[in-house]
Every structure is written in structure tokens, then in C-alpha cells.
Design a protein around this nucleic acid. Sequence first.
DNA 1: ATTATTTTGTGAAGCTTTTCACATAAGCCG
DNA 2: CGGCTTATGTGAAAAGCTTCACAAAATAAT
Lengths: 221, 221
Amino acid sequence: MEPTERLGKKRISESTIHRLSLYYRTLSMLEKENYETVSSKELAKREKLTPAQVRKDLSFFGTFGTRGLGYPVIELKKQIATILGIDRQWRVALVGVGNIGSALVSYKEFSRQDFHIVKLFDNDQRKIGSNHKGIVISDIKNLQTELQEAKIEIVIIAVPAAVAQYIVDDVVKANIKAILNFAPVNLKVPDDVYVRNENMSMELEYLSFAMVNEHPKKKLK
Amino acid sequence: MEPTERLGKKRISESTIHRLSLYYRTLSMLEKENYETVSSKELAKREKLTPAQVRKDLSFFGTFGTRGLGYPVIELKKQIATILGIDRQWRVALVGVGNIGSALVSYKEFSRQDFHIVKLFDNDQRKIGSNHKGIVISDIKNLQTELQEAKIEIVIIAVPAAVAQYIVDDVVKANIKAILNFAPVNLKVPDDVYVRNENMSMELEYLSFAMVNEHPKKKLK
DNA sequence: ATTATTTTGTGAAGCTTTTCACATAAGCCG
DNA sequence: CGGCTTATGTGAAAAGCTTCACAAAATAAT
Ligand SMILES: NC(=O)c1ccc[n+]([C@@H]2O[C@H](COP(=O)([O-])OP(=O)(O)OC[C@H]3O[C@@H](n4cnc5c(N)ncnc54)[C@H](O)[C@@H]3O)[C@@H](O)[C@H]2O)c1
Ligand SMILES: NC(=O)c1ccc[n+]([C@@H]2O[C@H](COP(=O)([O-])OP(=O)(O)OC[C@H]3O[C@@H](n4cnc5c(N)ncnc54)[C@H](O)[C@@H]3O)[C@@H](O)[C@H]2O)c1
């Protein structure tokens, strides 16, 4: 009776998952450059991390390398894709086809990575029914039913902050479990719904803070 | 001789600074709602944190509250603005007036927070010289000189990943110390230049990971 | 076949961040 | 005015994350 190890459900830190995304990106580049293998040292250098960090991160999920040689680029990339769940297509809907919403629809990085925006919603009569990059914009009124009919799995929120919560309430009713939110509000959702916030002011404010305080960077980096 | 305490230059964690941004946002809302004071408990509840966290974060910078009462909303907001350096105007330039670049120029949250985009650059002849939201788009050729003449302090990079590093090299030559980067590449800059990356794929991939792994959330949040 | 070299995988140490818990202080109320 | 309530500020403990350091495994070299 070992109560220490909860099989397969130990919490992986947010930082580790974010770094997996970085490794994935770097491995894609290495693949284009025709590398067959890569060491933790090289992988670390390309994303300004430490080799130990890279190895530790990967070790949470299995053993992928060969001692003395390094990691096989194509194989590791495939493995990370499986871990991140991006070895499949995700059906994405976007609500609010305004400035940022339109930009996101055109973002090639998303589609390249198997995030497919297949539904758009807005409440502006001039936009509803019009064709935007091959997708007809739906009326927000039908949000709940259309999300379900289209089997949407991820919803991107790009509406004004003041209405974001109302829309999210409907999104949750449609049984969506993942939300990427661009509105600068803290959305209230049930415990089983994942929300990630994209907050650009926060990053600008970090720069501002760093400049006025001559904030020392973390060593190594 | 106490080598332990480096006066006034102790490193504040990135998380603390990000939370200060959240507090600032919440305080702005509380101000609109005509609250005079707010407790660490209420502040924590609104951003899904713990009261102890709020108090600890603030304690790094001074004592702002009154025991038994809480924090004065307007005063604390002002103090955080000073800490973050957003009690002044920042002159911002944006390079790459494409999908995401245009969206950012229209982003009201930036201007409300005293980040003023006053210069735009592109290399597309059709865009150069045209007026975009009241700003004439400059030729990227003149980047270095115009950044200096306009006394720009922060540069936003919104160009394709393939050219981002070249542009950043010029930005660094113009003596800019802060960069907000939207291109999915790891930019190389000298040690005294701050770079923050805005990586949206990363957040989508986090959602993807969470869903395929039924990733437990951090307790409390 | 033996030795040298490289680089992984991983417990353990070290460091950072968060949470706890309580002394302390201010306001309130009878 | 004194006791009761509320809520801060902060050392200390706990939890979490990163780095160290080295055994182990693989290749390469002689
Ligand atoms: N513009 C940016 O660069 C930027 C950056 C980060 C975050 N944001 C945030 O993204 C959100 C949108 O910003 P924007 O600049 O694109 O604004 P916008 O006004 O250009 O776009 C908002 C869109 O939402 C639609 N909308 C409004 N109410 C709606 C409703 N009830 N149901 C459905 N659709 C509705 C509008 O018709 C419009 O198309 C805001 O919360 C903003 O803070 C914007
Ligand atoms: N579209 C999005 O929602 C989105 C989201 C996140 C990140 N990004 C990233 O932002 C960047 C821009 O994406 P986009 O979708 O806006 O692309 P885009 O092609 O619409 O815009 C790029 C702009 O940069 C200009 N440009 C190209 N080369 C240049 C150069 N050498 N000097 C100056 N200007 C130059 C182009 O003329 C264009 O106006 C990319 O790196 C992309 O990965 C985009």
C-alpha cells in the first residue's frame, strides 16, 4: 500500500506544458533543417533553457532519448504532439468577429497545428450571414444549439469584456470544456471547464515594470 | 557586513508582477462600483487567488492597508500604477500592420492604460504612406532613425516569424529596451533588453493537453 | 575488446513561491 | 472605554519547481 504515487494523474506543472510547446516548435524547425537527432543541450540553447530542464520535463512522460546520442527529432516531435493532444483535429468556434477575432481567423499557425476554426458568431446584423474567410457568420442567438450541432470542442471569446460572461454562460450550457478568452475579465465557469486567458496588457505592464525598476532577469535564461 | 540583503534590488517574481496587473484591473472595476475600501479577501475572490497571496504580493512593496478595514481602492490603484510604471505615458511603435498588427492598433485597453502607439512600420509599398487610424505608416527602411527621432520606448513586433529577428536586430540598434513579440520565434537580444512573448498557440495547446489528460486544476486557484 | 567520450535519466539538493497562522492594529458598539 | 470583531502584515512552514551531479547506457575510437 503506497499512497504516495497516484497512478497517471500526478499534476504536471503549467511551466512544463508550456515548455513542451516550445520543444515542439523547435523540433519542427530542426526537422526542416534536416537534423536527425538533437541533444537536450541544443534543444535548451534554442529556447534559452537548461539541458537538465529539458530532460526533466521529458522524463515526466517517458524515456525518448538514446544515451550518448540525444533525441530522434521526428519521433520526439510525434511523441510531444501526442502528449499535448495536437495529433488530432480540434473543432474550434470563435465568438466576436471584430478586430482581434478577424485576425485570429486568419492566423495560419492555428490551422497548421490542427486547431480548426469552423464556426463564427457575432450579434452584428451587418456581419451575420456574411462570408468571412470561407465561413458564414452565425447569429449569436443560436450559439448553444449550433455549438452542439457542429460538435465544437474549444471556443475562443473575442467579444467586448462587458458581454463576455453572458456568452460564456451559454458556452458552458453547450457543454464546452475549453475556452480561450481574450476579454480582460475573469470568467466564472464550473470546475470542469478549462479557461485560458490571453492578456496583452499584462505583458506590456510587465515590460513597463521591468523598465522602471531595472528588474534583474532570472539568471541563466 | 550583511551580504544577504541587496538593498532595493531583490527580485520580484514574474507571477507577483502579473498579479499586480490583475489587482489593478480589479481595483479599476471596484472604483467604478464606488467601493471605498476592499479587503484582501474580496480582491482575492475576484481574481480567484488567496487572501494571503494578495497580502504577501503587496507587502513586497510597502504597507497599503488598514487593519480591520482593508485597502483604500483609489489609493491602492494609484500605488500599483506607480509600481508597474503605468502612471506615465509610454511611447510605443508597432512593426507589421497586418492582421494582428491592425487589431492591436485599435485595441482600446492599450491607450486607456497609457501605452500609446505613435508609430507604425511596414515594408508593403501599398501600406507605406497610408493613414491607419490617424497614423501614417512608415517605411521599415527608416526604422532605426525614426524610432530614435520619435523617442519610442517599447516596440511591438507583428511581422512574419521569418523576418522578426532581422527587425529586432535593428530595434536593438535603435537602443530600444523593451519588446513585445507576437511572432512565434525565440528572439535573440542583448541582456539589457526585455522581451515578452505573446504566444497564442501555447495557450490553445495547454487547453488541448488539459482535455486529453483530464489535467487536475491547481487547488483553490 | 577495451577505453574514452558523449549524453540520457533521475534521485536528491537547492531554491523559489505559496500558504499558514498569529501577533498586531484599527474600527465599532454598547 | 473596554471588549469584540475584522482584517492586515509577516516570519515560518509547506509545497512546488529547478538545478545538480552522477550512474548508466550507448556510440566511437584505437
Ligand atoms: N483588438 C485587440 O487587439 C485586442 C487584444 C486583446 C484583447 N482584446 C479584447 O478582445 C475583445 C474584442 O476586442 P476587439 O478590439 O476585437 O473589439 P471589436 O469591437 O472590434 O469586436 C468585438 C466583436 O464582438 C461582437 N459582439 C459584441 N457584442 C456581442 C454579443 N453580445 N454577441 C456576439 N458578438 C458580439 C461585435 O459585433 C464585434 O464584431 C475585447 O474584449 C478586447 O478587450 C482585443
Ligand atoms: N493573426 C493572428 O491572429 C496572430 C496571432 C498571434 C501571432 N501572430 C503572429 O504575428 C505575426 C503577423 O501575423 P499576421 O497574421 O498579422 O500576418 P500578416 O501577414 O497579416 O501581417 C504581417 C505584416 O508584416 C508586414 N511585413 C512583412 N515583412 C516585413 C518586413 N520585413 N518589415 C516590415 N513589415 C513587414 C506585412 O506587410 C504585413 O503587413 C506573425 O509572426 C504571426 O505568427 C498572428
